[in-house]
Design a protein around this nucleic acid. Structure first.
Length: 339
DNA sequence: AAATAGAACAACCGCAAAAAA
DNA sequence: GTTTTTTGCGGTTGTTCTATT
């Protein structure tokens, strides 16, 4: 039977035998993989290159960690998944020795069910509305007696890929966007009516806020964000970076202002942070420097995180809406935080 | 002990992006 | 600049293991 990926006949499929594994390991350790499509030929395997690659990456690499996931690893997966969604390869980068496939399998077979038992939507990490939750109630009651509930916002010092792609909100808030709009609603809307972003350059905005939100509850401005994200946002909004009080992060997490200024280049920031992190220079970002109006934030992000310095209990306890936010009371029924 | 169901793990498939020709 | 090839990713399916009846 042919194999669509390489148009070769007689390629073997299915589980790998120890002999095949041995051949592959032997070849790659002595020659490297080079072009995967040529590996099976040189290694003497009747497999396609794709299959060889997968076998090596997911199973044979010497640096792989085998065995079950620890509680710490599990929490990391949940934390990062909340931010990144099903980006298994990205999530796996936070777990040395684990593969994307392994993480994905663990999620689908284990974590997903645990979250659902907690009444949380595993896709969004939001609470499932009560009428939908009813079906899960029994399972939830059972599990609650035996497990610690997962916090919706948690933080782990191992989170190093400060990706800013943000999931939909935990709380349902009124949207200025038409329900059938292809544009995603902002993460939060403040009590001030906001100018809708111009259609150009504002695709899929994730966050909108105004100066009213930067009150004493900075770290809980965006209840569905991790404190890493909140810190980034609040520290920038408390500066004079955005004197209009308005801004948003687009889908690339570029800081958009409605007047002047360069985009908020999150990728650049994280790059700097990670390099700083590697140098073990635990400066705290909360020691925010005064930021330059015109340069934007990224010139000032040479301080790295010590994420353990944040008060997670505070974040968890302030997960509900700060006073300045507009609430959709009809959705408050869903806020049965009774776990 | 055998049958079955569910969980866990491994591998495949199709697609898209990146790289090479 | 275009086409082809390679690589990487996420969803899905298939296989094996384990617990239960």
């Amino acid at each position: 039977m042919g194999h669509r990926c390489c148009n070769k006949q007689k390629v073997k499929r299915g589980l790998w035998s120890p002999e095949e594994d041995e051949k592959l390991v032997k070849y790659i350790t002595s020659h490297g993989h080079g072009s995967w499509s040529s590996v099976p030929k040189f290694a003497g395997l009747k497999r396609c290159g794709k299959s060889c690659r997968l076998r090596w990456i997911n199973y044979l690499r010497p640096e792989l960690k085998r065995g079950s996931f620890s509680a710490e690893e599990e929490q990391i997966i949940i934390d990062v998944h909340r931010i990144l969604g099903n980006r298994w390869a990205q999530i796996a980068k936070h777990l040395p020795g684990r593969t994307d496939n392994e993480v994905k399998n663990f999620w689908n077979s284990c974590i997903k069910k645990k979250l659902m038992a907690q009444g949380l939507d595993p896709k969004t990490h939001n609470l499932i509305p009560s009428h939908q939750r009813a079906a899960n109630k029994i399972a939830c009651n059972i599990s609650q007696s035996n497990q610690q509930p997962f916090s919706i916002i948690t933080l782990d010092s191992k989170m190093k890929d400060y990706s800013m792609e943000i999931n939909p909100p935990i709380l349902t808030l009124p949207s200025p966007y038409p329900s059938n709009s292809s544009t995603q609603p902002p993460l939060l809307q403040t009590t001030t009516s906001l100018p809708l972003p111009a259609t150009t350059g504002y695709q899929n905005p994730s966050v909108i806020w105004n100066e009213n939100t930067q009150n004493s509850q900075d770290s809980s401005i965006f209840p569905c964000l991790s404190s890493i994200e909140n810190t980034l946002i609040s520290s920038s909004s408390s500066s004079s970076v955005n004197p209009t009080g308005f801004g948003l992060l687009d889908e690339n997490c570029f800081w958009r202002t409605n007047i002047i200024g360069e985009p908020f280049d999150a990728a650049k920031i994280f790059e700097v942070m990670q390099s700083q992190d590697q140098e073990n220079q635990p400066n705290k970002i909360c020691d925010t420097q005064i930021m330059d109006n015109t340069k934007g934030v990224h010139d000032n992000m040479d301080a790295s995180f010590d994420t353990t310095s944040y008060d997670l209990e505070f974040v968890d306890s302030t997960i509900l809406l700060p006073g300045s936010m507009c609430r959709d009371l009809s959705s408050m029924d869903d806020l049965a935080w009774n776990f």
